[in-house]
Simulated scan of single mutants.
Amino acid sequence: MYRTPLIAAVVATGLAAGALAHGGATGIVKERMDAMDAMGDAVKSVTPMMSGAAPYDAETLRAAARTFREHSGEAMTTLFPEGSGGKPSEAKETIWSDWEDFAALAEQLGRYAEGLEAAADNGLAGSAGTGAMMGGGGMMGGDGTTGGGAMMGGGAMMSAEHIAEMPADAAFAMTAQVCSSCHERFRTKAN
């Protein structure tokens, strides 16, 4: 299976890009880059388990979820005061022009991470993988572009309690989708 080398390549590329992106960062920009690095490290610590390349460990997943929660909500939004864009920051100006959406994603990350922490004891869904279990490429009906997916009937975001009932890999995929949605909308792509 080619998953392990691919994951290793992605992780190595991400670490190298992160090191370059931090060049010259100080103050609040450095603080937020460090917070994003901590969350990135949390993702990297559980990705091998989610792909089957490492044995599943619920405590490692709970620790990752706690890291996401620690850096979500107001803890995240306070790291983005208006006027703190520009190099070396990777923040797009749309953070400040679409502040309500950005803040909603920061809150959603905390809610999903809370559910992920509780879902850690549920174990993995099995060899079918989260994509097959969840109905294809989307996150339970979300398009991944306007709020991180995972909408319930009536347009309400899923609660931590709903996510806590999922298999751990599905809960992780939903939490990671919030990160991806935020990066897609509010972070410049590395060259």
Rank of each mutant, 00 (worst) to 15 (best):
residue 141 G to P: 04
residue 179 C to L: 04
residue 15 L to W: 11
residue 176 A to M: 09
residue 126 G to F: 15
residue 146 T to G: 14
residue 93 E to T: 14
residue 85 G to M: 03
residue 115 G to Q: 12
residue 162 H to D: 03
residue 189 K to P: 04
residue 149 G to L: 03
residue 22 H to E: 07
residue 42 A to I: 01
residue 21 A to Y: 06
residue 76 M to N: 07
residue 70 E to W: 11
residue 152 M to T: 15
residue 84 S to H: 10
residue 104 A to I: 02
residue 165 E to Q: 14
residue 174 M to R: 11
residue 162 H to K: 05
residue 148 G to L: 00
residue 180 S to R: 08
residue 35 A to C: 10
residue 118 A to G: 10
residue 29 V to P: 09
residue 40 G to C: 08
residue 75 A to C: 08
residue 23 G to E: 15
residue 95 I to W: 12
residue 124 L to K: 08
residue 36 M to K: 00
residue 52 G to C: 06
residue 146 T to M: 09
residue 87 K to W: 13
residue 154 G to R: 14
residue 182 C to M: 12
residue 18 G to R: 05
residue 187 R to H: 13
residue 145 T to Q: 11
residue 75 A to P: 00
residue 41 D to S: 11
residue 51 S to W: 13
residue 135 G to A: 04
residue 39 M to F: 02
residue 101 D to N: 12
residue 181 S to I: 03
residue 104 A to W: 08
residue 68 F to C: 05
residue 100 E to S: 09
residue 108 Q to M: 04
residue 105 L to N: 13
residue 190 A to L: 12
residue 25 A to Y: 06
residue 84 S to G: 02
residue 165 E to C: 08
residue 56 Y to I: 00
residue 92 K to C: 12
residue 25 A to N: 03
residue 132 A to D: 14
residue 73 G to S: 09
residue 99 W to T: 04
residue 162 H to L: 05
residue 69 R to H: 14
residue 186 F to K: 05
residue 54 A to N: 03
residue 9 A to N: 07
residue 81 P to T: 08
residue 156 A to E: 10
residue 66 R to D: 05
residue 18 G to W: 10
residue 34 D to T: 15
residue 114 E to K: 06
residue 78 T to F: 00
residue 72 S to I: 01
residue 126 G to R: 09
residue 110 G to K: 06
residue 25 A to V: 06
residue 85 G to I: 06
residue 65 A to R: 07
residue 89 S to H: 09
residue 3 R to I: 13
residue 66 R to N: 04
residue 68 F to K: 00
residue 184 E to R: 14
residue 41 D to Q: 10
residue 94 T to D: 14
residue 153 G to E: 14
residue 182 C to K: 13
residue 138 G to K: 08
residue 59 E to T: 08
residue 117 E to V: 02
residue 80 F to Q: 02
residue 24 G to S: 07
residue 8 A to H: 08
residue 114 E to H: 01
residue 175 T to Y: 07
residue 174 M to I: 13
residue 9 A to P: 04
residue 114 E to M: 00
residue 80 F to S: 03
residue 73 G to C: 02
residue 18 G to K: 02
residue 62 R to V: 07
residue 146 T to N: 14
residue 33 M to W: 05
residue 133 M to C: 05
residue 170 A to L: 01
residue 155 G to I: 02
residue 189 K to G: 10
